[in-house]
């Protein structure tokens, strides 16, 4: 069975304890979460988790069902990378002394479409938003300097299909009303 990268989006109430219920859907099956982010969605009061993992298509379906089984989960979706526009953000803290020529920093920043967030006498903080390969590539280029800290956010993703969350939710409510 072929595994590939899936992004699972989960829309939930902002309820305490729900993060545990969401993550145990993965952990009890020994599935390793590559990244997880949580934030508010476009609908007030509804939170959105974005979870990336490698798995099979069958398992991705099972996970979506198991997530939707949680009472406070509205809806879960699985997406392959082709169905998404996604990005992550990386921050790099470099020792200032190791990268003294100012032009050179600008070169790198321009070449990678990165941004300098902060410059002090001790360090420079560079920010790069992009695909994981891109943030990794920049890491590679910066490695000849002294990297003091490096951090990457989890993935944030927007789906390509046009059906909105609101439509999905209205569907749910209409089903209820028709009963």
């Amino acid at each position: 069975m072929k595994t590939k990268e899936y992004t699972i989006s989960v829309f939930t109430e902002n309820a305490p304890g729900l993060l545990l219920r969401v993550t145990t859907v993965f952990t009890r099956r020994k599935l390793n979460i590559e990244s997880i982010t949580a934030s508010e969605s476009e609908i007030k009061g509804i939170h959105r988790y974005t979870i990336v993992l490698f798995t099979t298509d069958e398992m991705a379906d099972i996970i979506v069902n198991q997530l939707e089984k949680q009472i406070e989960v509205y809806k879960a979706f699985k997406h392959t990378n082709e169905e998404l526009v996604y990005q992550e953000i990386a921050l790099y803290k470099i020792r200032a002394k190791s990268i003294s020529q100012a032009d050179y920093t600008e070169d790198i920043v321009r070449k990678f479409s990165a941004k300098v967030l902060s410059i002090t006498n001790d360090y420079i903080v560079i920010e790069k938003t992009g695909y994981p390969e891109e943030t990794k590539e920049l890491y590679g280029s910066l490695q000849k300097y002294e990297i003091l800290e490096f951090v990457r956010s989890g993935r944030v993703a927007i789906t390509k299909p046009m059906k909105s969350l609101e439509e999905h939710l209205n569907e749910k409510e209409n089903i209820y009303k028709s009963k």
Binding site: I71, V73, Y176
Partner: peptide
């Protein structure tokens, strides 16, 4: 009689 995230009766 209604929880907006939970639809106990599938269609």
């Amino acid at each position: 009689d209604f929880i907006r995230t939970y639809l106990p009766f599938p269609v």
